[in-house]
Amino acid sequence: MTQTDLQGELERMHAASFGWALLCCNHRREEAEEVLQISYMKVLEGNATFGGQSSMRTWFFGVIRRTAAEQRRRRWLQSQIFDRWQNGLAGSAPELDPERMASASECSRTLLQALTGLSPRQREVLHLVFYQDLTIEQASQVLQLTLGTARTHFERGKRQLRKILSQSGVQR
Protein backbone atom coordinates (compact mmCIF):
# COMPACT_ATOMS: atom_id res chain seq x y z
CA MET A 1 0.00 0.00 0.00
CA THR A 2 1.50 3.34 -1.04
CA GLN A 3 1.63 6.41 1.18
CA THR A 4 -1.13 8.08 -0.88
CA ASP A 5 -3.39 5.00 -0.60
CA LEU A 6 -2.76 4.88 3.12
CA GLN A 7 -3.58 8.56 3.54
CA GLY A 8 -6.74 8.16 1.44
CA GLU A 9 -7.86 5.20 3.53
CA LEU A 10 -7.24 7.10 6.79
CA GLU A 11 -9.15 10.08 5.46
CA ARG A 12 -12.09 7.87 4.51
CA MET A 13 -12.20 6.49 8.06
CA HIS A 14 -11.51 9.85 9.71
CA ALA A 15 -14.98 10.59 11.14
CA ALA A 16 -15.36 7.06 12.54
CA SER A 17 -11.81 7.16 13.91
CA PHE A 18 -12.53 10.43 15.67
CA GLY A 19 -15.65 8.92 17.27
CA TRP A 20 -13.59 5.96 18.51
CA ALA A 21 -10.83 8.26 19.77
CA LEU A 22 -13.44 10.26 21.67
CA LEU A 23 -14.66 7.12 23.42
CA CYS A 24 -11.11 6.03 24.25
CA CYS A 25 -10.51 9.46 25.82
CA ASN A 26 -13.76 9.62 27.85
CA HIS A 27 -15.18 12.11 25.34
CA ARG A 28 -12.52 14.73 26.00
CA ARG A 29 -12.20 16.40 22.66
CA GLU A 30 -8.69 17.82 23.00
CA GLU A 31 -7.27 14.53 24.19
CA ALA A 32 -9.06 12.69 21.38
CA GLU A 33 -7.58 15.03 18.78
CA GLU A 34 -4.10 14.54 20.22
CA VAL A 35 -4.49 10.76 20.30
CA LEU A 36 -5.77 10.71 16.72
CA GLN A 37 -2.95 12.94 15.53
CA ILE A 38 -0.33 10.71 17.17
CA SER A 39 -2.02 7.64 15.67
CA TYR A 40 -1.91 9.19 12.18
CA MET A 41 1.76 10.05 12.67
CA LYS A 42 2.51 6.48 13.76
CA VAL A 43 0.91 5.10 10.62
CA LEU A 44 2.17 7.68 8.13
CA GLU A 45 5.74 7.60 9.46
CA GLY A 46 5.76 3.81 9.38
CA ASN A 47 5.98 3.25 13.14
CA ALA A 48 2.76 1.20 12.96
CA THR A 49 2.39 -1.01 9.91
CA PHE A 50 -0.69 -2.83 8.72
CA GLY A 51 0.02 -6.55 8.50
CA GLY A 52 -3.20 -7.46 6.68
CA GLN A 53 -4.40 -10.04 9.24
CA SER A 54 -7.60 -8.08 9.84
CA SER A 55 -9.41 -5.24 8.12
CA MET A 56 -7.68 -1.88 7.92
CA ARG A 57 -10.39 -0.38 10.11
CA THR A 58 -10.09 -2.82 13.00
CA TRP A 59 -6.29 -2.54 12.84
CA PHE A 60 -6.33 1.25 12.94
CA PHE A 61 -8.87 1.24 15.77
CA GLY A 62 -6.43 -0.95 17.70
CA VAL A 63 -3.67 1.62 17.06
CA ILE A 64 -5.92 4.41 18.39
CA ARG A 65 -6.81 2.38 21.46
CA ARG A 66 -3.18 1.62 22.27
CA THR A 67 -2.19 5.25 21.72
CA ALA A 68 -4.98 6.45 24.02
CA ALA A 69 -3.78 4.03 26.70
CA GLU A 70 -0.20 5.32 26.32
CA GLN A 71 -1.36 8.92 26.64
CA ARG A 72 -3.49 8.03 29.65
CA ARG A 73 -0.50 6.43 31.35
CA ARG A 74 1.64 9.48 30.56
CA ARG A 75 -0.97 11.82 32.03
CA TRP A 76 -1.37 9.62 35.08
CA LEU A 77 2.37 9.71 35.66
CA GLN A 78 2.44 13.48 35.27
CA SER A 79 -0.43 13.86 37.69
CA GLN A 80 1.34 11.59 40.18
CA ILE A 81 4.52 13.61 39.93
CA PHE A 82 3.24 17.18 39.72
CA ASP A 83 -0.43 17.50 40.63
CA ARG A 84 -0.12 15.41 43.76
CA TRP A 85 2.21 17.97 45.25
CA GLN A 86 -0.12 20.84 44.53
CA ASN A 87 -3.67 19.55 44.62
CA GLY A 88 -3.58 16.25 46.48
CA LEU A 89 -5.12 13.16 44.91
CA ALA A 90 -7.40 13.75 41.98
CA GLY A 91 -10.63 11.77 41.67
CA SER A 92 -10.30 8.65 39.57
CA ALA A 93 -13.86 8.48 38.29
CA PRO A 94 -14.14 9.17 34.56
CA GLU A 95 -15.46 12.65 33.97
CA LEU A 96 -17.02 13.79 30.75
CA ASP A 97 -15.85 16.92 29.00
CA PRO A 98 -18.27 19.65 30.23
CA GLU A 99 -17.99 21.47 26.91
CA ARG A 100 -18.92 18.30 25.07
CA MET A 101 -21.86 17.70 27.38
CA ALA A 102 -23.14 21.24 26.93
CA SER A 103 -23.12 21.00 23.16
CA ALA A 104 -24.72 17.52 22.96
CA SER A 105 -28.44 17.03 22.43
CA GLU A 106 -30.58 15.83 25.32
CA CYS A 107 -30.67 12.27 23.98
CA SER A 108 -26.92 12.09 23.38
CA ARG A 109 -26.19 13.62 26.74
CA THR A 110 -28.25 10.95 28.46
CA LEU A 111 -26.52 8.22 26.45
CA LEU A 112 -23.05 9.59 27.25
CA GLN A 113 -23.95 9.81 30.92
CA ALA A 114 -25.37 6.28 30.88
CA LEU A 115 -22.21 4.94 29.23
CA THR A 116 -20.14 6.10 32.21
CA GLY A 117 -22.10 3.60 34.31
CA LEU A 118 -20.65 0.68 32.31
CA SER A 119 -17.26 -0.94 32.62
CA PRO A 120 -14.68 0.26 30.06
CA ARG A 121 -14.80 -3.06 28.18
CA GLN A 122 -18.59 -3.03 27.97
CA ARG A 123 -18.51 0.59 26.79
CA GLU A 124 -15.97 -0.23 24.11
CA VAL A 125 -17.80 -3.29 22.79
CA LEU A 126 -21.14 -1.46 22.63
CA HIS A 127 -19.55 1.50 20.89
CA LEU A 128 -17.85 -0.67 18.29
CA VAL A 129 -21.01 -2.64 17.56
CA PHE A 130 -23.70 0.05 17.72
CA TYR A 131 -21.78 3.21 16.84
CA GLN A 132 -19.20 1.85 14.42
CA ASP A 133 -21.42 -0.93 13.00
CA LEU A 134 -18.76 -3.58 13.49
CA THR A 135 -19.63 -7.19 14.22
CA ILE A 136 -18.87 -8.62 17.66
CA GLU A 137 -16.06 -10.61 16.07
CA GLN A 138 -14.47 -7.47 14.63
CA ALA A 139 -14.91 -5.73 17.99
CA SER A 140 -13.12 -8.62 19.68
CA GLN A 141 -10.21 -8.17 17.23
CA VAL A 142 -9.95 -4.46 18.03
CA LEU A 143 -10.02 -5.11 21.77
CA GLN A 144 -7.85 -8.25 21.50
CA LEU A 145 -10.42 -10.38 23.29
CA THR A 146 -11.76 -13.82 22.49
CA LEU A 147 -15.10 -13.86 20.72
CA GLY A 148 -16.81 -15.39 23.74
CA THR A 149 -15.48 -12.71 26.10
CA ALA A 150 -16.51 -9.94 23.72
CA ARG A 151 -19.98 -11.46 23.43
CA THR A 152 -20.31 -11.62 27.22
CA HIS A 153 -19.27 -7.96 27.56
CA PHE A 154 -21.73 -7.06 24.80
CA GLU A 155 -24.69 -8.81 26.44
CA ARG A 156 -23.96 -7.56 29.96
CA GLY A 157 -23.28 -4.05 28.67
CA LYS A 158 -26.55 -3.96 26.76
CA ARG A 159 -28.48 -5.13 29.80
CA GLN A 160 -26.81 -2.56 32.05
CA LEU A 161 -27.25 0.26 29.52
CA ARG A 162 -30.95 -0.52 29.08
CA LYS A 163 -31.37 -0.53 32.84
CA ILE A 164 -29.68 2.88 33.23
CA LEU A 165 -31.57 4.39 30.29
CA SER A 166 -34.93 3.11 31.55
CA GLN A 167 -34.17 4.61 34.97
CA SER A 168 -33.51 7.96 33.32
CA GLY A 169 -36.73 7.63 31.33
CA VAL A 170 -35.19 7.53 27.86
CA GLN A 171 -36.01 3.94 27.04
CA ARG A 172 -39.24 2.20 27.65
Partner: peptide, 17 residues
Amino acid sequence: LREHFAALRREEEARAP
Protein backbone atom coordinates in the same frame (compact mmCIF):
# COMPACT_ATOMS: atom_id res chain seq x y z
CA LEU B 1 -29.95 1.37 21.28
CA ARG B 2 -28.55 1.48 17.77
CA GLU B 3 -30.67 4.57 17.06
CA HIS B 4 -29.32 6.31 20.16
CA PHE B 5 -25.76 5.58 19.08
CA ALA B 6 -26.52 6.66 15.51
CA ALA B 7 -27.78 10.03 16.76
CA LEU B 8 -24.64 10.45 18.83
CA ARG B 9 -22.50 9.51 15.82
CA ARG B 10 -24.20 12.10 13.61
CA GLU B 11 -23.53 14.82 16.20
CA GLU B 12 -19.92 13.86 16.68
CA GLU B 13 -19.20 13.49 12.98
CA ALA B 14 -20.57 16.99 12.39
CA ARG B 15 -18.09 18.37 14.90
CA ALA B 16 -15.09 16.24 13.91
CA PRO B 17 -11.98 18.25 13.03
